[in-house]
Deep mutational scan, measured.
Amino acid sequence: AQASVVANQLIPINTRLTLVMMRSEVVTPVGIPAEDIPALVSMQVNRAVPLGTTLMPDMVKGYA
């Protein structure tokens, strides 16, 4: 199954992502693919992302 990017902590709005904030997990619905984690580093989220939330393309500025 495809692993997705999941928030490893609460990520406040406009925060630049770092590796420690993200983990890969097989979840439904599928979000951003886990292999994109390196590309997500330093991108900003456009909303607060609670712990355990799957990151979707529309949550990350410049990803989609």
Rank of each mutant, 00 (worst) to 15 (best):
M56F: 10
V30A: 12
N14F: 11
A48Y: 10
V49N: 01
L55D: 00
T18V: 12
Q44V: 08
N8R: 08
V30E: 13
R16H: 15
V5N: 02
I11G: 00
L17V: 03
I11W: 02
N14Q: 12
L10H: 09
V49Q: 02
M21N: 11
Q2D: 15
M59E: 03
I11R: 00
T28L: 07
I32K: 00
I13D: 13
Q2A: 11
A3K: 06
S42A: 11
E35R: 06
R23W: 04
N8G: 13
L40W: 02
T54P: 07
N8T: 08
A64N: 13
M43R: 14
T15V: 10
R47Y: 14
D36H: 12
V20R: 11
N46F: 07
L17F: 02
A3F: 12
V45E: 02
L51S: 12
T28W: 04
S4F: 02
I11Y: 00
M56Y: 08
S4G: 04
G62N: 08
P57F: 05
Q9V: 13
T15P: 01
G31H: 01
L55C: 02
L17N: 00
Q9S: 14
I32E: 01
R16Q: 15
I13M: 14
D58V: 07
S24V: 11
A48L: 09
L40D: 00
M22P: 00
G31K: 00
I11M: 05
P50E: 11
T54I: 10
M21T: 03
A7Y: 00
V41I: 14
M43I: 04
P57G: 08
Y63Q: 04
Q2I: 08
M21W: 02
V41D: 04
M22E: 02
D36P: 01
V49L: 10
Q44T: 13
V27W: 03
G52V: 02
T54C: 04
R23A: 09
Q2K: 06
V5C: 04
S42C: 07
T15W: 09
V49P: 01
S4Q: 02
M56L: 13
M56N: 07
T53E: 09
T28C: 07
L40F: 02
V30I: 11
N8V: 11
L10Q: 15
V60A: 01
L40T: 00
M59F: 11
I37E: 03
Q9C: 04
M59L: 05
L10G: 10
S24N: 11
R47P: 02
P38R: 09
L51E: 15
A1M: 12
A48K: 10
P12G: 07
N14A: 13
P50V: 13
M59A: 09
R47D: 14
V49F: 03
N8L: 09
A3W: 05
N46Y: 09
P50M: 14
M22R: 00
A64V: 12
T18G: 06
Q44W: 07
N8P: 02
P33D: 04
R16V: 15
L10R: 07
L19Q: 08
L55A: 00
T53S: 13
M59Q: 04
A34D: 12
A34C: 04
A3P: 10
T54L: 05
V20P: 12
P38H: 15
E25T: 06
A64I: 13
A48G: 09
R16K: 10
K61F: 10
A3Y: 10
V41P: 02
L17C: 03
P50G: 12
I37Q: 06
Y63S: 04
I37S: 04
T54M: 03
A39F: 13
E35F: 11
G62M: 09
T53Q: 12
Q44H: 15
P33L: 11
T15K: 05
P38L: 10
A34K: 07
L51N: 15
G31A: 03
A48I: 14
M22L: 14
I11K: 00
L51V: 11
P57Y: 06
V5P: 00
M21H: 12
A7W: 02
T54Q: 03
Y63F: 06
S42Y: 08
R23F: 05
D36M: 13
T18I: 09
M56S: 10
V41F: 06
N14T: 06
P50K: 07
T53R: 06
L17P: 03
M59P: 00
E35D: 12
A64L: 12
L40V: 07
V27D: 02
L10E: 12
P29L: 05
M56A: 06
A7E: 00
A7D: 01
T18Y: 04
G31R: 01
A1T: 09
S24Y: 06
D58N: 10
R16C: 07
Y63D: 04
V5T: 07
P29C: 05
S4V: 02
A64Y: 03
E25P: 00
M59Y: 10
V27Q: 04
M59W: 14
N8Q: 10
S24I: 08
R47M: 14
I37R: 10
R23T: 14
V5H: 01
V49D: 01
A3H: 10
D58K: 04
T28R: 03
A34V: 11
Q2H: 06
N8Y: 03
L40Q: 00
G52P: 00
M22V: 13
I13V: 13
S24M: 07
S42H: 09
S24L: 05
T28Y: 11
V27S: 06
G52Y: 06
S4C: 04
Q9E: 12
T54R: 03
P29T: 06
P50Y: 08
S4W: 02
L40S: 00
S42W: 07
E35A: 10
S24E: 15
Q44E: 15
T54Y: 01
L19G: 05
L51M: 15
P57E: 05
R16Y: 14
P33R: 10
P38V: 10
Y63I: 04
Q44K: 07
I11A: 00
V41A: 10
S42K: 09
N14R: 06
V20L: 15
T15E: 09
G31F: 02
T18Q: 12
V30T: 09
V6F: 01
Q9T: 13
P57C: 05
T53A: 13
P38D: 08
M43T: 06
T15I: 11
A48Q: 14
A64P: 13
L51R: 10
E35N: 10
S42E: 11
Q2R: 04
P12I: 05
K61R: 15
I37T: 06
A64M: 09
L10V: 14
V26F: 10
T53Y: 08
P33M: 10
G52F: 04
K61V: 15
I13A: 10
E35G: 07
M59N: 08
M43N: 07
D58H: 09
A39Y: 13
R23M: 05
L17T: 00
P29A: 04
I32P: 01
I37V: 11
T53K: 14
T18H: 14
P29M: 04
V26K: 04
Q44S: 15
T15Y: 10
V60L: 09
A39M: 15
E25M: 05
A1S: 09
T28S: 13
V6M: 10
P12Q: 14
G52E: 04
A64S: 15
S4Y: 03
M22A: 01
P57S: 08
R23D: 07
M56I: 12
G52S: 12
A39Q: 13
A34N: 05
Y63P: 04
R47K: 13
V30M: 11
A64D: 12
D36G: 12
N14E: 12
P57W: 06
E35M: 08
G62F: 08
E35V: 13
I13S: 10
A7L: 03
I32W: 03
D58T: 11
K61H: 13
V26L: 13
P33W: 15
V49R: 03
L17W: 02
S42I: 03
R16N: 11
V41L: 08
V26I: 12
L51D: 15
V60P: 00
P29R: 03
P33C: 09
L51Q: 14
G52N: 11
L55K: 01
A34F: 07
T18F: 04
P50I: 09
I32A: 01
I37N: 01
T28N: 11
V30N: 09
N46H: 09
Q44N: 07
M43C: 04
G62Y: 05
V26N: 08
I37L: 13
I37M: 13
T15G: 07
T53M: 15
M21R: 03
P29H: 06
M21Y: 08
T54K: 04
T54D: 01
N8S: 08
A39K: 14
V20E: 13
T54V: 10
V6W: 00
N14W: 08
L51C: 05
L19M: 13
Q2W: 12
M22F: 06
T28Q: 10
G31Y: 02
V26P: 12
P38M: 13
G31V: 02
P12H: 11
P50S: 10
V6Q: 03
A34W: 09
P38Y: 15
S24K: 08
A1K: 04
A3G: 11
R23E: 04
P57I: 04
M43W: 07
P38Q: 10
E25S: 05
E35T: 12
